[in-house]
């Protein structure tokens, strides 16, 4: 496991008592944690555990019923995300953040070419030189191991693994500091998964990215994350270092989860 480049300052992201109700039904309750630069946090749990609700609250795609989510902006100031105006929030989302969806079609423009998919964020922040945008797109396709000869093909002709890698390139092109990932390897074949995990691991290490990864797959959590949060029924069951939680699980539910892993 790559280790983070720690800096001494404040955390990058801080969640305090994040709670979200859907009417009277609990989405997630009272989640608090801090994420430092270069750290990867896995949120694990089964379907309905509230992990995706939490991810959406953290990434401002959903407004929490109560609680605070703060983020350290590039100027070093810690800002309450839900106090930002919409323009600031959207700018953050397309420059300093990335969001990798489980289904790549949700995060890609399926009808435009791979090059334009990667270049969009650059154009959104004002890049106006076609040659430079294309060059950058090429270099990113190469980084995510997509043949640069496919730059003008649209992702409808790509395999699931390629689409997912394209989505990652599209997110990383603006040099974000924080990536949210929702089951990034879900729905992929095992061999394709392994390749993607290794790639993610490399990129996270190379760019010192922080990430919040939602997954139900403990192997993914072990490979990618430094720390993890185990959730069930909207509650945090256990938190700690990833290997600590997996090798010395304390809560009954975590013990059940760990003992349910199939051994190969």
């Amino acid at each position: 496991m790559n280790l983070p480049v720690f800096d001494d300052g404040a955390p990058l992201l801080r969640a305090s008592g994040v709670t979200r109700y859907y009417g009277t039904r609990i989405g997630c309750t009272d989640v608090s944690f801090e994420l430092w630069p270069g750290e990867v946090l896995a949120v694990v749990g089964e379907s309905g555990s509230g992990k995706t609700t939490l991810l959406n609250c953290l990434s401002t795609r959903l407004v929490p019923t109560s609680g605070v989510v703060e983020y350290r902006m590039r100027d070093g100031a810690m800002r309450d995300l839900f106090q930002l105006n919409e323009a600031e929030r959207r700018l953050l989302m397309r420059t300093d953040w990335g969001f990798v969806h489980q289904n790549p079609a949700d995060g890609l423009r399926m009808t435009v070419s791979a090059g334009a998919n990667v270049g969009e964020r650059l154009m959104a922040v004002g890049a106006r030189n076609y040659g430079a945008i294309r060059g950058e797109a090429e270099s990113w396709l190469d980084k995510v191991e997509i043949d640069t000869g496919r730059i003008d093909d649209d992702p409808r002709g790509f395999s699931g693994g390629m689409r997912q890698r394209l989505q990652i390139a599209r997110n990383l092109v603006t040099g974000p500091r924080l990536i949210f990932m929702d089951e990034p390897t879900g729905g992929l074949d095992v061999s394709v998964q392994a390749r993607l995990l290794d790639l993610l691991r490399q990129l996270v290490g190379e760019f010192g990215l922080s990430a919040v990864v939602v997954t139900h797959d403990l192997a993914v959590a072990r490979l990618l994350s430094h720390r993890m949060i185990v959730m069930r029924g909207g509650n945090v069951i256990e938190t700690g270092l990833t290997d600590q939680v997996l090798d010395d699980p304390r809560a009954p539910y975590t013990q059940l989860l760990v003992s349910s892993i199939l051994q190969v």
């Binding site: 280790l3 720690f6 430092w36 750290e39 700690g240 270092l241």
Partner: peptide, 10 residues
């Protein structure tokens, strides 16, 4: 804290 342990391991 987990962060301190990670730093020790590094």
């Amino acid at each position: 804290s987990p962060r301190e342990i990670l730093a020790l391991r590094k």
